[in-house]
């Protein structure tokens, strides 16, 4: 079966600092894979390399068997590859509805329409409203982002990305900064995602990783240390030494 996302021998360095060393990764359609590693391991860098925000020195990225290494960010999105950000990237002056409708409108290629009022895009608005319902943001639909508490903003961050109907979804610490009383909303939202989306999630919270992921990749110093099911990773001596041990004591 063709992997939904495949990364081959990806390398990138800034001078002497290697942020990616021969990274190989494959996600089957519908995969639930976690990417863990200590701070500075290059997790977000890998997301940037995959989505095209950063160009690799060598190596290749494929979506459903099609090479996308030379495509720009926007073109990769059109191939079904979407991401969320570790730090919210929202349209702060716009309402929740507009934030999400904007994403849906771009996916439906309505964004070049110069003369038709935005409200006439009924299907776009309906789809955005549907997403808002799914993430239980209904009450805040017409509020500007800046009036929302951080946890709710985090949901908008995810909803914008889901507006792209991705086939491969890269989640960069979706629950980061969310109070523990609200993180369950995010986890439930992730559980409710369609099964056929391949998901790579970066997460520090081991509980989330063990609950969500079927496969875990451990990244250390820009290289893959080990990959396997969560239970095996938890027992792995090497991982305990560099990551879990440190985490438990910290």
């Amino acid at each position: 079966m063709t992997p939904a996302l495949e990364v081959r021998d990806l390398c990138r360095s800034f001078g002497a600092l290697h942020v990616a060393r021969n990274i190989n990764l494959a996600l089957a359609p519908g995969a639930r894979q976690a990417l863990i590693g200590p701070n500075g391991a290059g997790k977000t860098m890998l997301v940037n390399l995959i989505t095209g925000a950063l160009k690799p020195d060598s190596g290749a990225v494929f979506v459903r068997g099609e090479e996308i290494t030379d495509l720009g960010q926007a073109a990769r999105v059109k191939k079904g590859l979407a991401r969320t950000y570790q730090i919210n990237q929202l349209f702060r002056e716009l309402t929740v509805l507009e934030n999400i409708a904007l994403s849906v409108a771009e996916r439906r290629r309505r964004g070049a329409n110069l003369l038709q009022p935005f409200s006439r895009n009924r299907e776009t608005v309906d789809e955005a409203a549907q997403l808002i319902e799914t993430l239980r943001l209904g009450d805040d639909m017409l509020k500007p982002i800046r009036e929302l508490p951080y946890g709710r903003q985090r949901l908008v961050e995810i909803a914008i990305t889901l507006g792209q109907r991705p086939e491969v979804l890269l989640l960069d610490e979706p629950a980061a900064g969310v109070p523990s009383t609200e993180s369950h909303i995010i986890l439930e939202a992730l559980d409710a995602l369609p099964d056929n989306i391949a998901i790579l999630i970066i997460e520090h919270d081991m509980e989330v990783v063990f609950r969500f992921a079927e496969q875990v990749t451990v990244l250390v110093g820009g290289a893959v240390l080990v990959e396997g099911p969560p239970a095996a990773i938890a027992k792995d001596e090497g991982v305990r030494a560099v990551y879990l041990g440190e985490h438990e004591h910290g």
Partner: peptide, 10 residues
């Protein structure tokens, strides 16, 4: 409001 995100939604 956010050029980077506009790139990221295609």
């Amino acid at each position: 409001e956010n050029t980077r995100r506009m790139h990221a939604i295609g």
